[in-house]
């Protein structure tokens, strides 16, 4: 019993420490973000590694999610004779929830883990210390560009995910099942609101981009500099960012759509 309480206390104190460190780290990073934009080629390189290299998984997953939505949506709607609403269902599900959330989860496991591994290994092999010794701040030179690369990639990836998903839903609904093409698009356009759905989706993915990127760079920078420490940090990145994305999604959804 005492042991249990002690473990609980230990976990709580540890958690608070971590959050405190992460916050200080975020401010230090923002303070040292100048070079990420002044020397934009640093960030471009990270846009390549976080964004371009995540494209394949985003496009493929988006297509499949859209096609499944097409099938399931049609199956459910035709019971009520409302197949015409298929376009709305597909587009709203993707824009509001699935696009931002699934893209962020994929991004965390594809790009976030890679960023953690890279920074963690640089730390373990003293590359960060070496840089510091050359009077080059590793937060400005290594960490901040990776953070901004992630933050900028995320909304674009989510938009690509949603678009590919809508096309996937259209392919199943219109091409394969034979819902009327005009009805599909016009119903969609009628029920999707630009501000309410498109802009809110982009806002969500932007917030997720911050969360996932911050967790990824922080775990890398904060890891124990050993092979085991790096692998533990990678696991933490994936687990923490997934939980964070889902929790933030709940909070954002309740602010954006409910109680208005």
């Amino acid at each position: 019993m005492i042991q249990l309480l002690r473990t609980l206390g230990h976990l709580t104190v540890d958690g608070v420490w971590q959050v405190g460190f992460a916050t200080r780290f975020l401010f230090a990073m923002l303070r040292h973000s100048g070079p990420s934009f002044a020397r934009f080629s640093l960030t471009i390189r990270e846009l390549y590694f976080s964004g371009v290299l995540s494209l394949v998984i985003i496009v493929v997953s988006g297509a499949f999610v859209g096609m499944v939505l097409g099938l399931q949506g049609y199956d459910t709607l035709q019971r009520f004779g409302s197949e015409s609403a298929l376009g709305s269902i597909v587009a709203l599900s993707l824009l509001r929830e699935l696009g931002p959330v699934v893209a962020a989860l994929l991004f965390a496991s594809r790009a976030g883990s890679a960023v953690t591994a890279e920074i963690g290994l640089m730390k373990a092999t003293e590359q960060l210390t070496a840089m510091d010794m050359m009077a080059v701040n590793p937060i400005a030179r290594v960490v901040a560009p990776r953070f901004w690369g992630g933050v900028l990639s995320m909304p674009l990836l989510a938009a690509i995910f949603s678009t590919v998903g809508v096309i996937g839903g259209w392919f199943i609904g219109v091409v394969v099942i034979g819902v009327d093409n005009g009805t599909f698009w016009s119903q969609m356009a009628n029920s999707v609101d630009f501000r309410e759905d498109v802009v809110n989706g982009v806002v969500k993915s932007f917030v997720f981009g911050w969360a996932v990127s911050l967790i990824a760079v922080f775990q890398g920078y904060d890891c124990t500099p050993t092979a085991e420490g790096v692998s533990r940090a990678i696991t933490k990145t994936v687990v923490y960012s997934s939980l964070m994305v889902l929790a933030l999604d709940f909070i954002l959804t309740s602010f954006m759509y409910i109680g208005k």
């Binding site: 587009a91 824009l95 674009l156 938009a159 690509i160 949603s162 678009t163 590919v164 809508v166 698009w185 969609m188 356009a189 009628n190 999707v192 609101d193 630009f194 759905d197 498109v198 989706g201 982009v202």
Partner: peptide, 11 residues
């Protein structure tokens, strides 16, 4: 993709 969502999807 964003343009597509704004123009075609949200119209």
């Amino acid at each position: 993709a964003l343009m597509f969502l704004a123009m075609q999807v949200a119209n």
